[in-house]
Design a protein around this nucleic acid. Structure first.
Lengths: 139, 139
DNA sequence: TTTCTAGTTTAGAATTATTATAAACTATAA
DNA sequence: TTATAGTTTATAATAATTCTAAACTAGAAA
């Protein structure tokens, strides 16, 4: 069940992403944003989890569209990887990742855990939008 | 024409990647390593450039296999992106990138241009293999 | 409330990148 | 020179994503 306060929040997120609140999109919101902690996911995972149990079914196309809209609205962040699959993060704050080459898992690194003492000047006419560090780890 | 000194270097790279030197692989080497400057590429680009003009034709499968072997041997580096396509770099030294969100182009940042004053401790039992910074830029 | 329309959902087709397959070919050691 | 393990290739298979167009619906206007 969607509790009323969250519903408002979901509708606000959808509207500001230029999406009408529909039951499919609200179900996606519920799965993505009704949480204590942020998490990482792929569209494949989202599709499985959302359509696993009874209730509104949501098509793959709708999941792709909604995730894409949330990403460009800034409610989701795409994660940089070397895999041919898109990874997303519900943590949109500036932060970094460990990437385990063995298990292929991503773990968050809090922003404060990394400090840069020197950053290059961007090319002329360009501004820095964001800076991400990926630390590849292995056994 | 492959000049003799480079040929030796290519054969060495191939052998140490567990690949026999064949004319197809040598043609790939020539394109990748017969250069002043390092560069970024995708398999698609490699395929086009290599098969554009006369001479030995190389199949897509061979290109994929060779690039994969060079990558695990450490002669090429896979680049982290948010695209569903693999990007490679002939610069295998530790370095960083600007990623232009407009033009979707990658530019190298020399290692010395970024300095970290604080780096997190990796999870237990894991070692840091490498650390990459991607700076997203826009107009 | 009803109606209208622009926006939405969906199944399935199309596209794109990559990996697998298996038959014909070749480097190279003996 | 020959045998064979490795290689190449066209093509098929797979996987992720995007496209399409017909059926459906939110919500503004009457």
């Amino acid at each position: 069940m969607i509790i009323s306060d969250n519903l408002k929040m979901y509708v606000q997120k959808l509207r500001s992403s230029n999406l009408r609140p529909t039951k499919q999109r609200l179900k996606i919101c519920q799965f993505l944003f009704n949480r204590e902690k942020t998490f990482h996911f792929t569209v494949e995972i989202l599709n499985k989890k959302i359509n696993k149990n009874r209730g509104t079914k949501v098509s793959l196309a709708t999941i792709y569209n909604t995730v894409e809209a949330f990403t460009s609205a800034g409610y989701l962040k795409e994660i940089l990887t070397s895999k041919n699959k898109s990874y997303y993060d519900t943590n949109t704050k500036s932060h970094h990742h460990f990437y385990d080459e063995g298990s292929k898992e991503l773990t968050d690194i809090h922003y404060s855990q990394i400090k840069l003492s020197k950053v290059p000047i961007p090319p002329k006419g360009k501004k820095i939008k964001n800076l991400e560090v990926v630390i590849r780890i292995q056994k």
